[in-house]
């Protein structure tokens, strides 16, 4: 997902994404979502292209990207793990869980592990509050997470990643 796009492929990708969404009302967020999905992040070179085609200023596009926690301006790891920090998960020990996971991965929030495998992010509620604490690994949500369960999840995740190569 974390392709470092050279400028011609970037332009081609962006043009097709913009063409696909330009007819929508309020197309900017759908375009940013599609860009991040295709490239893993929203490179700074994309900002002027999107701005020009939507007749916005670069500042407006940059302002939107920087407002939303989900959009990233730099490549992430191969996988993203989000730990829920909200109250329901707190009541089931998420403060300890997050400390342990950070220690286990030797990384903090908004950072990526040294091997480039995992980017760690906080999240405020995954809607799985009856089975707290919850984490999200890419698009999979896990409930009642313990460190044992986390090791298991990690194991599965990294094994699959190796097989794909």
């Amino acid at each position: 997902m974390t392709t470092t796009a050279d400028s011609s492929t970037l332009a081609a990708t962006l043009n097709s994404i913009i063409a696909e969404h330009q007819g929508l009302e309020g197309p900017l967020l759908p375009i940013l979502h599609a860009t991040q999905k295709a490239l893993g992040y929203i490179p700074s070179e994309a900002v002027p292209v999107i701005a020009q085609q939507l007749q916005l200023t670069k500042a407006e596009v940059h302002g939107v990207i920087s407002f939303y926690h989900f959009f990233r301006s730099h490549p992430a790891g191969n996988n993203t793990i989000q730990i829920c920090r909200a109250e329901s998960c707190q009541s089931m020990g998420s403060r300890e869980l997050e400390a342990n996971i950070k220690q286990r991965l030797k990384t903090d929030y908004h950072q990526t592990t040294a091997d480039g495998e995992i980017t760690l992010e906080p999240v405020y509620c995954l809607g799985n509050c009856a089975c707290s604490p919850a984490i999200r690994v890419n698009d999979d949500i896990h409930g009642r997470v313990t460190m044992d369960k986390f090791e298991h999840i990690l194991d599965e995740l990294l094994t699959v990643a190796v097989e794909l190569k």
Partner: peptide, 27 residues
């Protein structure tokens, strides 16, 4: 009818912020 995705901003649950976001702006 269309589904539009937010982008991880709690404030966008506030209705006017949500409308700004739907319009493609900061929430």
């Amino acid at each position: 009818l269309q589904v539009r995705l937010g982008a991880g901003a709690y404030i966008c649950g506030e209705e006017t912020s949500l409308l700004e976001s739907l319009e493609g702006k900061r929430g």
